[in-house]
Amino acid sequence: MTGGNGPDRAERLGFWRSNSLTLVFGGAFLVVLAAQAVAGRAEFNEQMAVAGLQQIGFGAYLTSSDFAVDVTENWQSEFLQFFLYVFGTVHLLQRGSPESKPLDRTGTESDREQRTGEHAGSDSPRWAGTQDWRQAVYSRSLGLAMALFFFLSWFAQSVAGVSAYNAERLLQFQAPIDWSAYLASSDFWNRSLQNWQSELLAVSAMAILSVYLRQRGSPESKPVGSPHSATGVEG
């Protein structure tokens, strides 16, 4: 008899069902992004009308710095959240939270626990069974990917941001500034920090609220009947 979570069960469920978490949230992302573009263009054109300037079409708005900076400033904060969370939960603990590892498993854990090197199985990813730089990279690949996405989106935010910022300055008959000056500006840091603080608040709230509150059937929650002190247990 095959296990309940094996490949055969995944095949029976079908592609859409077995990938529904990614597909649903990915589809919702595209819908919300499109809605943001529609609302953003309307707001942008309202500002142009007030200034007595020509309004722009939808395609022009999609390629504008105004739209790009609004999108990327949110992306970088989300990837920052997951980058910090993935690396932080290696060593940081929260008693009673399913978001935390058990209190006696802090750190990177042993090769046996992580099934790396000589302890890798036949079904383990190929690089997990190596004992060189490939294992070192692969064993941190999730956090590194989140860090890369964060820095790329933060850089994109800075490039789009300086363009949008200079467009506003020109409307006020002020001289534009270069990219390095924008990196030291209050506009750049206000855009970044206002998103960072909200992400950090959300993570800390999730960590502590999951100690005492439950969501039946969710892996982000403990089983409903688990004691508040149970740590690293998922429902």
Rank of each mutant, 00 (worst) to 15 (best):
T231V: 08
V69G: 13
V50P: 09
F87S: 06
P223R: 03
V24G: 12
S229I: 03
F188L: 05
R17N: 01
R140A: 03
S192Q: 08
E43R: 11
G117M: 01
Y212C: 05
V32D: 03
P98A: 15
A28G: 15
S153W: 03
D123S: 14
F29L: 15
D132R: 05
G3C: 02
V31S: 05
T22F: 11
K101D: 00
D111P: 13
M146S: 08
I177G: 01
L183G: 00
F151I: 05
S139Y: 10
W196K: 03
Q135I: 03
R134D: 08
L200M: 12
Q194G: 01
E168R: 14
L33T: 07
E109M: 14
L213H: 00
D66V: 04
E118K: 15
Q54N: 14
L62R: 14
S20Y: 02
G27T: 10
Q197S: 09
A35D: 14
G88W: 03
G3S: 14
R216H: 12
G96C: 07
F79D: 04
S204Q: 10
R191N: 05
A156P: 01
Q81G: 15
A167V: 11
G96K: 07
A49W: 06
W154G: 04
L93M: 04
R17I: 07
A160I: 02
V71G: 09
V203E: 09
W127Y: 14
Q47C: 07
G4A: 10
W75T: 13
S139T: 14
Q174K: 12
T72Y: 00
L171G: 14
R134A: 08
Y182P: 02
Q197E: 09
E168W: 09
S210L: 06
A120V: 13
E109K: 14
G117T: 03
R214Q: 02
H119F: 14
L23R: 04
D70Q: 02
D104H: 05
L80Y: 08
S97E: 02
G26A: 01
F67A: 15
S163G: 05
A37D: 07
S218D: 11
R126W: 08
S158R: 11
D66I: 00
S153Y: 08
D70K: 02
A10F: 02
G26Y: 08
R214G: 11
I208T: 10
M146P: 04
T106N: 04
G161N: 10
S20F: 10
G235N: 00
A10W: 09
Q54M: 02
L144D: 01
